[in-house]
Amino acid sequence: MKKGFVHEINFTVNGIKRALSVHSNETLLKVLREHYGLTGAKEGCGGGECGACTVLLNGSPVNSCLVLAVEADNAHILTIEGIAAKDSIHPIQQAFIEYGAVQCGFCTPGMIMTAYALLQKNPDPDEAQIKRALSGNLCRCTGYVQIIEAVKAAAKRMKGKRG
């Protein structure tokens, strides 16, 4: 790759400040997976259609396969690895386990990140709002029923905590 196509970016990944040289055509997904070993975000289609690569960019869910790494300059990135400390578990993750919302698990990190962003913005979503928020995250295993139940349960618990 020619020198001119390499860019320096500074960004925060899961609360840690990072600086990195990236190529113009490198995606955020590739950088997260290959430079930082954050393999929770998955590539299911590479075209922004399935949502398995969803991470939060400044709090909003994005398909990281469609975001160029250079676009993440100065941004805050949050991935599935960053929503709970190593030995703890986030209420959304807990609800996904309890409600059977996990089958093969390939869509799960993306699904949880989208749900996380939703509940940050709207702590008390109704079913229609949950469905709308998750409409960009495909799941082929579950039929979505238990996922909806899990997000509802997580919302209730998180609200309870906030008191």
Binding site: T39, Q93, I97, G105
Partner: peptide
Amino acid sequence: KNVKRYDAEEKVKGTSVFTDD
């Protein structure tokens, strides 16, 4: 009984190892 999946926790945490990982 609704026994919890063995692999659920690694899957919700994104640490489950798929081939490309």
